[in-house]
Structures are given as C-alpha cells and as structure tokens.
C-alpha cells in the first residue's frame, strides 16, 4: 500500500500539478487545464509502470497521444495543446543536463552514453505520440460514418 502511494500516486500527482502549472504559461483555460493535467499524470503512470526505459517513454507517449485525440474529439478542440503539455514531463531535460555535465567534466564515455540515451528518449516520444495519433485517426475515420448516420439537426 505504502509503495503504491510513494512510488506511483505521488509522482503522478506531481506530474499532474506540473502540467497544470504549464497550462498557465500556454494560456489554457477552463476544462482544458484538467485534461492537460490528467494527460500528464497518465503518461507518467504508464512510464513508471513500464519500467522507465526508452520503450516505456514510447508507450507513455502513445498513451498520451490516444488520450489527447479522444479528448479533442470530445471537446471539438485542436489537439495541439493537450499533447504539448502532457508530453512535457517526459521530455528528457535531465538527459540534456547530465550529458552537458559529463561533457564539461571530460568524461567522454558517459557523455556519449547519456547523449545517445537522450536522443533515444526524444525519438521514442515523437514516434510514440505520432503512431498513436495516426492510428487513432485512421480508426476514427472508419468509425465516424456510423456515428454521423443519425439524421442531421436543423
């Protein structure tokens, strides 16, 4: 019980609040704030559950991509803002920083390791969100005619 609280619940709460903080910077109002926060928390939860590897970043980005696409369909809003904010906690800021500090310290081996890992995480995020979004759009385009078949309102 305690491990669930400290290992999963608290980090996800932090990701949620950090994303809500970011919505102030990107001028997102109303329910959008909550959606961004939940997206960020969801992404971080998937990342933790999948083991905090590059593949975990891929899965987390895919989860965020799908969640944001669904939410943008529900609210009939551009998906841009939701994906943008929810992905931010996963962006490898730590990787950039550690790569820099190994580089300055002259530790070439660890510098290259960290640099490659950082590029890997960034690529995994991009490909994950891209793939989930594209798949969602393809599937949704097939579902939509069925949804829209109701008689149009005046």
């Amino acid at each position: 019980m305690e491990t669930i609280l400290y290992d999963y619940a608290l980090p996800c709460l932090c990701a949620f609040l950090a994303c809500v903080g970011f919505t102030l910077v990107f001028n997102i109002h109303g329910v959008g704030k909550l959606i961004c926060g939940v997206g960020g928390a969801l992404g971080w939860l998937v990342y933790l559950l999948a083991g905090s590897t590059i593949f975990a970043a891929f899965l987390a980005a895919a989860a965020i991509g799908t969640f944001s696409e669904v939410m943008s369909r529900v609210r009939r809003c551009p998906v841009t803002g939701y994906v943008l904010v929810a992905l931010l906690p996963l962006v490898p800021g730590g990787g950039i920083y550690y790569a820099m500090s190994y580089c300055v310290a002259g530790d070439n081996q660890r510098f290259l390791d960290t640099l490659l890992h950082t590029f890997g995480v960034a690529a995994a995020l991009a490909v994950g969100a891209m793939l989930a979004s594209s798949l969602f759009r393809t599937v949704y385009a097939h579902l939509r005619p069925a949804v829209r078949r109701k008689p149009p309102q005046a």
Partner: peptide, 21 residues
Amino acid sequence: IGVLMVLVPGVALTNAMREIM
C-alpha cells in the same frame, strides 16, 4: 533539471513530430 524543464524544447519537438506526421 527541474527548472530547465520550463526551457526544454518539448514544444518544438512535439510540433516537429506533428508536422512530419
């Protein structure tokens, strides 16, 4: 690292991948 996260190019990265997509 915490502070640098507000400067990190998450926006540019996300936009780049959406354009390519």
